[in-house]
Design a protein around this nucleic acid. Structure first.
Lengths: 361, 361
DNA sequence: TTGAAAGCGCTAACAT
DNA sequence: ATGTTAGCGCTTTCAA
């Protein structure tokens, strides 16, 4: 016996067949006499035997590994705190079930190449992290029959993939509504990256809610961003030089809100005294900022956990029905949004709107 | 042919042996006639053949996968931004070499169990992320013969493992020295987690540098922290209630510096006007803080890159010489440290210690 | 130029 | 209660 001990070595030492060893080591010891079990266990232990998981995977046609795939767009983890949290949730679900994770970060946009890399027999299924519009990951159905679930993007039905994500529309509607209830009427918005579904969903919810309250959406206050802090700075530059300003700006994510805040500091514009800001996502750092940010929180860990659960279900049952799970965002009120009455009533003096469904006094 | 096409299927279709297909698909086409090559390639393409990497690994006794192992102590990625950056570097090196990453997060402290999970034939080597004192990961030599390199912990030689890390001592000495050169004489320190080698290395460098400049280290200003923001808050509570205060506090990492800053805000103590703070690590968020933090930066991406490089070298050459690589930290001066002259003389009117090297007025 | 055959280490029917 | 055997899909001598 040279190199690592194998089943054969253990069998030889225990004086039995490899089947016996295999069975016993897989927990089917009830089939055997006690002393045999004992023998085998001891032999295995003495040799320091460890089952080779590659051979096992080949024989079982199951790898007990799932892939976590980052979109080539944001393949650097560092810039993707989201993936971080989700990964934790995935790990939490997988660990006790003895599944492992393979991290896959395609660097190309060629779907064939990407899927060749993902679906090469080394995983039983994959979690796609926030695929964006036009992502090779979404060509899934043409290139692979692997069970798949997407997180961080609420995909249109036609992609046929299960997804787990925050309910962007409801959450943004909640935030907008809350801001309005704080008395704000003049509201600006920084849009997210146009390739992200979430950006459109958040914007749509904003517009819809404004309409619901009969508030005008002023296009010169709708700034294009791309979810990066820098784009938040640019949005601030563009907005703050205008003669008329909104009393509050909603950013489609925290990073842009941060950038906005940063530029306000540069210009010595007090937040929230002169202008209010809210974000979306509740990124780790925003709580520790100079001006703690009012934002939407959601349990990203749970997103990962659910994704892993869903994926394992698909793998084990073969059930391929795409299913959509949206989890609730929750409004976290911190200190970046001030009451808007004074300013607001000056701008838009309508009495209306809050009648809908609410109890009247 | 049922299920995914295999070598056999391709061979059948191309009318040749599987050896031929295998060879050609591995790029040894020069051995064959052009039309044969052509045949095979076409057959493979038509069938959508993709080599099964599990079978390949078994046959080659090489998995082309490396493990990235988190210490059970900090198994939640979320709380480990460090791992993030390093992972990116590792990925960057591995991707073009067609290596994959398996993420391993042991949840137990039993070294046998931990290493059974790590070294089960599914990886060719492992990167250990910041193993702490007493970590099961460090029992490596007893349980595995896998090539291994550690990052984020500068381990003592006796562990016999290669490591790549920032040069903690030099960097902290640099920071301390700089602070002294800013005119500070009364300097406090928040220590890191006692199980981390880095904590001791940073503290040692601080003390050594103070000694070098003949400055006293006042033990009541040496606060015990654990690298968490909360411990920074606690340190602040403990320090700021003292009657005599240092003019500057060095925290052994940014998180604690943040906590400290946060408590200063609570107490309305202006930073850096009334007290200066410096950190260590240059975490992503500190640049965007209310008071941008002066800190030590190092290229964590490069740490990961080098680690992967070293590991692959070990795997490919079998060279198991433990080697230590320390990379330089660089001082990043932001706005959390003020010049120390005025304050120092104001708060602590002793004539003493500030003589050394400082210019008198 | 090409192919046959012996594994890699394990699993799982199917005997016995 | 235990063993025999035929794979899993690929690589790699070695022979033709």
């Amino acid at each position: 016996m040279r190199g690592k001990p194998t089943l054969r070595d253990v069998a030889a030492r225990a004086g039995c067949s490899i089947t016996t060893v295999s069975n016993i080591l897989q927990g089917r010891s009830h089939l055997y006499r006690e002393d045999m079990v004992e023998q085998v266990l001891r032999a295995g232990h003495e040799l320091g035997y460890r089952p080779n998981s590659v051979a096992r995977s080949l024989a079982r046609r199951r790898t007990a590994t799932i892939g976590v795939v980052l979109d080539p767009q944001h393949a650097r983890l560092t810039h993707n705190l989201y993936a971080h949290d989700v990964l934790d949730g995935i790990l939490a679900f997988l660990e006790p079930r003895d599944y492992d994770i393979r991290l896959i970060t395609p660097r190309t946009n060629d779907p064939a190449a990407v899927w060749r890399r993902i679906d090469n027999g080394s995983i039983d299924g994959a979690v796609l992290i926030a695929p964006v519009m036009g992502s090779p990951l979404l060509e899934w159905r043409c290139y692979s029959r692997l069970p798949v679930v997407a997180v961080g993007s609420t995909l249109p039905d036609e992609y046929g993939v299960s997804c787990i994500d925050i309910d962007n529309e409801t959450a943004m509607a909640t935030l907008t509504e809350w801001v309005i209830q704080q008395g704000h009427r003049a509201i600006g918005f920084i849009k997210g990256h146009p390739l992200h579904w979430s950006a459109h969903q958040r914007e749509r919810a904003f517009r819809r809610t404004m309409a619901l309250y009969n508030l005008p959406v002023r296009e010169e206050w709708m700034l294009q961003g791309d979810y990066s802090p820098e784009s938040g700075v640019r949005a601030a530059e563009q907005l703050l030089r205008q003669s008329e300003l909104p009393t509050v700006v909603l950013a489609a994510n925290d990073d842009m809100a941060m950038g906005f805040l940063q530029h306000c500091r540069t210009l010595e514009i007090a937040v929230p005294d002169r202008i209010s800001v809210a974000g979306f996502d509740d990124s780790v750092w925003v709580q520790r900022m100079g001006i703690p940010l009012t934002t939407i929180h959601h349990d990203r860990y749970q997103v990962g956990y659910l994704a892993a659960q869903r994926l394992l279900h698909q793998i084990e049952t073969g059930d391929a029905h795409p299913q959509r799970t949206l989890i609730n965002g929750v409004l976290v009120v911190r200190q970046s949004v001030a009451m808007g009455y004074a300013l607001a009533s000056a701008t838009t003096p309508q009495p209306t709107y809050s009648t809908e469904g609410g109890s009247r006094s």
